[in-house]
Design a protein around this nucleic acid. Structure first.
Lengths: 245, 245
DNA sequence: ATTTACTATGTAATATTTACACATTATGCA
DNA sequence: TGCATAATGTGTAAATATTACATAGTAAAT
């Protein structure tokens, strides 16, 4: 046998057929679970649904579904949102995968958690099957599977994220007052903030558009309404370099 | 037929057997890929290996492996590190899952990316099969699969993380000089920093222990050596509340 | 007309960040 | 041994950001 090309050592056992290789891989069921946050009556809420499993019959669970063949994880998460809330153009971000071998009573199922933020009033839950509804984040407990852990993780993620990115506006109406904005931050961060300093901070960022309208139907002096200037934000996204821990 | 308990609507189609349910789920092959960063000669490095696939025969790829039955994702990532570097007690964190349907030429494979930081000099690569070696992060290109995208994502993740958490010390020897520390930050953040301000910052954090030793074998005036005070850091972990974007 | 529950606004004190320069000390080499 | 090199080590002033805090005004409800 003649070779006219020298073969390097590692090339001796090259795998010719990637398909055969992959077919031999062990496989696992994969799901996506969505932690869908909303904001209503100055409370952070989470969309949950009664579990289908008898084992968890009195427990709520997150909205989740199996990932389909050839479906991207993001796609699966958007599909779930669309199916359940009818909303399409919604904030969504992957948080992380959960893989404890006993997290599902039916055997091994790995799930990827997504966090979504949506304005409760911009949509109506059409289907209330299985008691689909908003529950106050504070009072959530006894969730099915490891869903409490997933919610906790997504909540921490949200607390951090909202300080560094303008996510919060996804939870508010397009037009909002500074009080509503502050209430949102206070609810999510679980702190109380000084009103003057809060306003000063947003004023100095210069990312709110004063639309020259006032709140309606509030039982007190109405405040000005603002929109968030997404366009300006996109352009300005500052890269901060600093060290702090 | 008599019922003595009222059944709520959603309970009519409760699933009795979770196992049967899960068995009916579609399954996918799942892998873990590790982006292992090191720091040497003032360069950020990544541990890569020649691909086994003929299709990618001249390309490098990340260290990855299939996730075993009943293995947690973290476990799988630690296993890979242990097998390849012999190191056990290493920094490791999940970054995110990658799920593009065509990311693997052998068919659908979902991978979860992990980022690991280790001190190149604290271990020796025992096995150099398939040209396993450190490559400068800057010069990485033509990686197999979607591994370039994974590295990019992990690099961004690292840049952000290192500013908020004391990860960087995992890349340095236990005893290090302030210059080494600054070089590390400059390499990872790809900026140059003012030396006095850098030192002042770390001095004000008060998390470095002056061990009263000097650098050895440097071709210039030696600097003091420090250790990072992990214990104090654990206790102090400050929760900063602020809004900035 | 009064009470209620908010809006709206400014300043002084403090802490943090930035920009910037010079004297010192080991080493390597002529 | 002395000079060049390449670092270490240190301080201050200016600018910026953060914090703490109080009063007057307005719409709605009674």
């Amino acid at each position: 046998m003649k070779k006219n090309k020298q073969i390097e050592p590692h090339q001796e056992h090259l795998i010719k057929d990637a398909k055969v290789l992959v077919e031999a891989y062990p496989k696992v069921p994969l799901t996506v679970d969505c932690v869908i946050f909303g904001f209503e009556e100055n409370k952070l809420k989470v969309l949950v649904i009664k579990s289908d499993l008898e084992l968890y019959k009195d427990h709520y669970s997150l909205l989740g579904d199996i990932v389909k063949d050839n479906e991207e994880l993001d796609e699966a998460a958007y599909r779930i949102l669309k199916e359940r809330t009818g909303m399409n153009d919604v904030f969504l971000d992957q948080v992380r995968a959960f893989s404890h071998p006993n997290r599902h009573p039916g055997g091994r199922v790995i799930t990827v958690a997504y966090c979504s933020l949506l304005n409760i009033n911009h949509h109506q839950l059409k289907i209330h099957d299985n008691d689909l509804n908003w529950h106050s984040h504070e009072s959530l407990c006894d969730l099915a599977f490891d869903h409490k852990e997933i919610v906790d993780e997504c909540y921490s993620w949200l607390q951090k994220r909202i300080q560094e990115h303008p996510l919060g506006f996804n939870l508010l109406p397009e037009k909002f007052s500074l009080r509503e904005l502050q209430n949102l931050y206070e609810a999510i961060l679980a702190v109380s903030l000084d009103r003057r300093n809060f306003r000063k901070k947003f004023a100095s960022m210069d990312l709110l558009i004063d639309i020259d309208e006032m709140e309606q139907d509030v039982p007190h002096r109405p405040g000005k309404l603002y929109k968030f200037n997404f366009e300006k934000y996109q352009k300005s996204k500052r890269k901060w370099i600093g060290i702090d821990f």
